[in-house]
């Protein structure tokens, strides 16, 4: 007797998409972001000293487009790192798969929610 069963749907493409989006975003703009937020702005090199102060950065995240940029950069960078770490730790046979998922995808999901909550908490 032939039974037709639907193949079990996998969550993997969703994680793969987030991994790819984060990988492309960080490949195209990551070096500039690190140079700007980590080197030029804090030291005032090539930019005014008050460029990254409280009022300016608050104004940036008050803007809806600014919020979207911050959410995309932080969360997609986490999802990118989570996918790489999950697959590598899996290949290393570092532990139980559900534990590895919790330590990678779980952390990325939690920190995405924290970022979203903070962006809403700072107001518009």
């Amino acid at each position: 007797m032939i039974t037709h069963t639907q193949p079990k749907r996998s969550m993997a493409p969703i994680f793969w998409l987030l991994f790819g989006a984060g990988g492309m975003l960080s490949a195209l703009f990551g070096p500039a972001l690190i140079i700007l937020t980590g080197i030029m702005i804090p030291h005032g090199w090539g930019l005014p000293a008050g460029f990254g102060d409280f009022t300016h950065v608050l104004a940036f995240v008050h803007n809806p487009i600014g919020k979207l940029v911050v959410l995309a950069v932080i969360s997609l960078f986490f999802w990118h790192g989570a996918e790489r770490m999950f697959l590598t730790l899996k290949d290393m046979r570092a532990g139980d798969l559900s534990l590895l998922r919790l330590a990678t995808y779980g952390v990325a999901a939690l920190l995405t929610l924290v970022t979203l909550a903070l962006l809403l908490a700072v107001g518009f």
Partner: peptide
């Protein structure tokens, strides 16, 4: 594969900034 950890760590530094921003001018 380890570069993924570096990318995520940088995201963490930005998130720390957002946490400080939400706590006010002194924390930031």
């Amino acid at each position: 594969e380890l570069t993924g950890l570096g990318v995520a760590l940088y995201g963490g530094i930005l998130l720390a900034g957002l946490v400080c921003l939400s706590r006010g001018a002194e924390a930031f």
